[in-house]
Every structure is written in structure tokens, then in C-alpha cells.
Design a protein around this nucleic acid. Structure first.
Length: 451
RNA sequence: CGGGGCGUAGCGCAGCCUGGUAGCGCGACGGUUUUGGGUACCGUAGGCCGUAGGUUCGAAUCCUAUCGCCCCGACCA
């Protein structure tokens, strides 16, 4: 993309409405525009990152054997009356009537609808196990939306549902999700710690929340510092193996890590004092096992091998996709702007032409641009007729992790500059070498395919 | 939902107390000058002062109502 032809309305000053850093930076970097409390338009740059994150989620879900599909955002109230949640949900659910005076609602979550699809089409234990999921907009009419996309009323969320014959199968699904979530967050450059959590209104016996440590987090968290030493890394795992998934669950839940909802001071105090941590975290996902809570009242049953109709065991699992943008920025920024992890960056590399109109500089930039695109990358070429300082400031603000700086002085010596946004270090090299270096860097951070 | 604050140009703000017909910075646009970390200067455009009603000769300013937004707390992907 050439910046002169892109739509990137960056702001020099901080909008008054934004208090926390991720919200400020998203507005300044021209990623979002607020339309109402907790409701945002996604401008091109924000939309691009949202898509990257969404596609990583898809990649990892599909890798784990889960099947993508999509439910409507507007749903009839009847299904919700059947589950008993139409009355239970309260004013957080946005309700409306259609022209025939039928009660409708904007889906705040989709247990009912997935269960309905399941019962309509699945009848035999032979069709199990089954995990289906969607990434779809949800609406919860929060009392107090805040922090930009971190607590919007409208938000983009992956929600998945597993249907299994037995509790053991459902718990394997639970573990499989835990593993896939660990992979998902790490690919985005985040460390998200699974913490024992409270089940809340969704209900269920087993649940973990995934939290990203950040000062601006809304939850207070308590953990053993050893937990943050764990990484999933690039290990391979067989998602069908109960033992392997169970082992990962045990490894990543072997140290104390809880939110304030489930915190137990007596257990916490048994941890050696130097390892006890009290911090704040951003909740970016949650997994539940809830047995037959929905399948029984809604008649989601299968016929088992003995010919009996039995309710299926279910679980649900969520990842806050739009919230993740905020969480990633909270965890990756400095005073100049965003620093995108390679896995989610909207463009792989920025090209800064220090002297637009200079024959050699223009030609070198065009060459780099073409070579990078040919290699399968998306470069962002700042070809505007702006001063160097302005171009640098824009690049720093929007946070591309790598920048190639091209100017007449360097070109006189046959070199351009490759700069890391994170470290600020610059290395001079020939243009072809810079392209090779970018290839090398992104070999470790494949960009997602999506569903 | 309780408590606090704010709505004036695209963005950030001043003016309001002590009514007299709206201003600054950034940005945008046009020039000149610059060009390796937001250059300097000149000029231009842009506002029914959130909305409605009231008081007044006169309202951004005072009064009433209403809508919207932000922050703190209680609740939540």
C-alpha cells in the first residue's frame, strides 16, 4: 500500500475522550472512530489488525479441529425463553420488536442458537465429538462502556461450543481449547495466563479465564511468578491425544493463578513470598465446561450405542477478538506509539522515502516495494511529500515493527537502513539484503489464512 | 445505577463568574522557504457555541428542561 493512496487519518493530539493508552493510540493512529458510547467504526488500519487477529483465531481453531460457521446477530426471543435466559439476562440484553411486533434481540452470546442448530441436525452419538464456533459481533448493553474497544457495547468475539457424549469427552474438549488458546495468544505476541475463574451467569463447574497482565487491566489477579516463565513455544501437539492435552493443562495450571473472584489467601500465602504477585490483568478469553445445563432444557440429545436418548455434554469458549487489539497495544507500546508484534502487524514493513522526488530515492523505494510484494509481504510505502520527521513520527505512531529508510545519502553508498521499532536499532545494508532480512524475520511469524 | 466532570471549527482548548454578536494552537488548503526525527513565514477556508424553551433591547455567557460524552465506584468477552 502506498500511503498517499491509503486512508489513514492520524491525529497529532490526544482526543479528550480517551484516557487509557490503547484507546488514545487507536484513535491517534486512525484505527477507530467512536460513534456512540461503546460503539466504534473500524477505520482501515484498525480493520486490518482486527482481521489479522480474527484470522489467527480461525487458524488455531481449525488446527484444533473446530469448525467455523456463523449465526445471525438478531435472534428471536423464543429460543431464549426456552432456555430461561430471556428473563434472566436483564437489561444488558438489547431487545427490540420487528414490524410484526415479534420480540427480537441482538445476540449477547449464542449458546441457545448453537444448541438449536445442533439439535436440529445431530441425532447420533456417531456424529460426536463436535465443536463448532463463530466469530461474530455481539452486543451487550453495558452499564458503563469504557476503555475504547476493551469494553465496548458492541464487540467482536469468537465463541465456540463443544458437544460430546460423555463428561470425559467434554473435558477433553475443554483441555483442547486451553491448548489452542495458549497457541493463539502466543502467536499474537501476548502472554495470556489461564486462571481459575468464576463461572458467572453462563454457569458451569469448570472454567478458566485467560488474562494478559497489564496495569490498566480491570481484574485484580494473584499468581505465582513461576507461571510467567511458562511458554507454549513451537512444540507440536496432537489435539486428539487426551494425554497430551491433559498434560498441557496440568503444566499451565500447576502454579497458583487466580482472579479476585476465586482468590484464596490461605493457599496463596503458602507460595514463597518472593514469588507471590498481585497485579492487574485484561481478560481476553474464557473456557467453560457446563455439562448438560443447556442440552437438557433445550432437548439437545443424541441416541447412544444402546439406543437411549441422552443429553449431550457441552462447553463454551470465548475469545474477545476486538478487545485483543486493546490488550495487545496495552502490552506493546512506548511514548511514540504502538509497537505491533510481528504476528498481527497490519503491514509487515514500512518504507520511508526521505526525499520524495529524488530520482535515486524514488527508484530505490519502488524497487523495494515491488520486491517485498513479490515476496508475499504487505509493505506500507510512505510516498507522501512530507518531511522526514513527519514520516518517522507517523511510522512510529502506527507501530509497524520494521522500517526501511531510504535516502540519497545512504544510496550514495549503496545502502538503506533497516530499523526495529521495538529496539530502535538501525542497521545499514543493501536493499536486497533488507528484503532478505524481512523474509527471515517473518519466517517465524507466518501471517494467518483465516477461515 | 450512585458520585463527579464536560459539550464552542476536523482535533486540543480559551471565552462563561462580571450578557454587547466568537478567539488561540494543531490540522486542512494556497504560496514562499525548507528537506536524515513533527522547518519557518505569509495568506485562505472552516463554527445556528449539543438541542429546546425561558429571562433580556440583546444570550456561548443567566435560568429550566432535555440529549450526548468522559471519569470514579458497584456489574461484565
Amino acid at each position: 500500500m502506498r500511503l498517499s493512496r491509503y486512508f489513514l487519518p492520524v491525529l497529532k493530539e490526544n482526543p479528550a475522550e480517551a484516557q487509557i493508552v490503547s484507546h488514545r493510540l487507536m484513535l491517534r493512529a486512525g484505527m477507530i472512530k467512536q460513534q456512540a458510547a461503546g460503539i466504534y467504526s473500524w477505520l482501515p488500519l484498525g480493520f486490518k489488525v482486527l482481521r489479522k487477529i480474527e484470522n489467527i483465531v480461525h487458524d488455531e481453531q481449525i488446527r484444533a479441529g473446530h469448525i467455523p460457521m456463523q449465526m445471525p446477530t438478531l435472534q428471536p426471543a423464543d429460543l431464549w425463553r426456552e432456555s430461561g435466559r430471556y428473563d434472566a439476562y436483564g437489561p444488558e440484553m438489547l431487545r427490540m420488536k420487528d414490524r410484526h411486533d415479534r420480540d427480537m434481540l441482538f445476540s449477547p452470546t449464542a449458546e441457545e442458537m448453537f444448541t438449536d442448530v445442533f439439535r436440529a441436525h445431530v441425532n447420533s452419538y456417531k456424529d460426536l465429538p463436535l465443536t463448532i464456533y463463530q466469530i461474530q459481533w455481539k452486543f451487550r448493553d453495558e452499564v458503563r462502556p469504557r476503555f475504547g474497544v476493551m469494553r465496548g457495547r458492541e464487540f467482536y468475539m469468537k465463541d465456540g461450543y463443544n458437544f460430546d457424549l460423555t463428561k470425559e469427552d467434554a473435558l477433553h474438549a475443554y483441555n483442547r481449547h486451553l491448548v489452542s488458546y495458549l497457541r493463539t495468544y502466543e502467536r499474537m505476541g501476548l502472554q495470556a495466563i489461564p486462571m481459575r475463574a468464576d463461572s458467572g451467569p453462563i454457569g458451569g463447574d469448570d472454567t478458566h479465564e485467560f488474562l494478559v497482565l497489564a496495569e490498566t487491566g480491570e481484574s485484580e489477579v494473584f499468581y505465582d511468578s513461576q507461571i510467567t516463565d511458562l511458554t507454549f513455544g513451537d512444540r507440536t501437539i496432537n489435539y486428539d491425544s487426551r494425554e497430551e492435552c491433559q498434560a498441557v493443562l496440568e503444566e499451565f495450571t500447576s502454579r497458583y493463578a487466580r482472579t479476585d473472584e476465586t482468590h484464596d489467601a490461605a493457599i496463596f500465602d503458602q507460595i514463597p513470598e518472593e514469588r507471590r504477585r498481585v497485579a492487574r490483568g485484561i481478560e481476553v478469553g474464557q473456557i467453560f465446561y457446563f455439562g448438560t445445563k443447556y442440552s437438557e432444557p433445550m432437548g439437545a440429545t443424541v441416541t447412544d450405542a444402546e439406543g437411549n436418548k441422552v443429553p449431550v455434554h457441552m462447553g463454551s469458549h470465548g475469545i474477545g477478538v476486538s478487545r485483543l487489539l486493546g490488550a495487545i497495544i496495552e502490552a506493546n507500546h512506548d511514548d511514540k506509539g504502538i509497537i505491533w508484534p510481528e504476528g498481527v502487524t497490519p503491514f509487515h514493513v514500512g518504507i520511508v522515502n526521505l526525499k520524495q522526488g529524488d530520482e535515486a530515492a524514488d527508484a530505490a523505494c519502488e524497487g523495494l516495494y515491488a520486491d517485498l510484494e513479490a515476496a508475499g509481504f504487505e509493505p506500507l510505502y510512505d510516498d507522501r511529500n512530507e518531511r522526514a520527521g513527519g514520516k518517522f513520527a507517523t511510522m512510529d505512531l502506527i507501530g509497524l515493527p520494521w522500517r526501511i529508510t531510504v535516502g540519497p545519502r545512504g544510496l550514495a553508498n549503496g545502502v538503506v537502513e533497516l530499523t526495529s521499532r521495538r529496539s530502535g536499532e538501525s542497521v545499514e545494508m543493501a536493499p536486497a539484503e533488507a528484503v532478505a532480512k524481512i523474509k527471515e524475520i517473518y519466517a517465524k511469524h507466518p501471517h494467518p489464512k483465516g477461515a
